[in-house]
Simulated assay, not measured.
Amino acid sequence: MTHPAILTHAAAVLESRSEAYGPADTALRAIAARWSLTLGQPVTPAQVVLCMIDLKMVRLAHDPGHRDSLIDVIGYAALMPEVQR
């Protein structure tokens, strides 16, 4: 798959997830709030994005050819500017 095709696919996945779960920034804020309670310390939406990228990177280290994990890394990275506003 070429890099334009990968980016196009990642954009389509982000759109699909937004339709299914609502705006990403809203979901990431909600996750940050829950993780803050669970961990007993403040967690930001940007930290949630970084942790989700870490999760996907561990999966990619196990199976570098797993395309879904690669797409998810790209998608989470693309969301970072939205949560840093």
Rank of each mutant, 00 (worst) to 15 (best):
M1L: 06
T2L: 06
H3M: 13
H3D: 04
H3P: 10
P4W: 08
P4N: 04
L7H: 15
L7Y: 06
A11Q: 10
A12L: 12
L14M: 11
E15T: 07
S16E: 09
S16Q: 14
S18L: 03
S18R: 14
S18M: 08
E19T: 13
A20V: 07
G22E: 04
P23W: 07
A24S: 09
D25Q: 15
L28A: 00
I31K: 03
A32S: 00
A32D: 00
R34W: 00
L37E: 02
L39T: 02
L39A: 06
G40P: 11
G40F: 03
Q41E: 06
Q41N: 01
P42E: 14
V43I: 15
A46T: 07
Q47V: 00
Q47P: 00
L50Y: 05
M52I: 09
I53L: 08
D54K: 12
D54R: 12
D54W: 09
M57K: 14
M57S: 04
M57P: 01
V58F: 02
A61Q: 08
H62M: 11
H62K: 13
D63S: 12
D63V: 11
G65H: 02
G65P: 02
H66T: 10
S69C: 13
L70Y: 06
L70M: 13
I71T: 07
I71L: 12
V73S: 07
G75W: 08
A77W: 09
L79E: 04
L79Y: 01
M80L: 15
E82D: 11
E82K: 06
E82R: 15
V83Q: 05
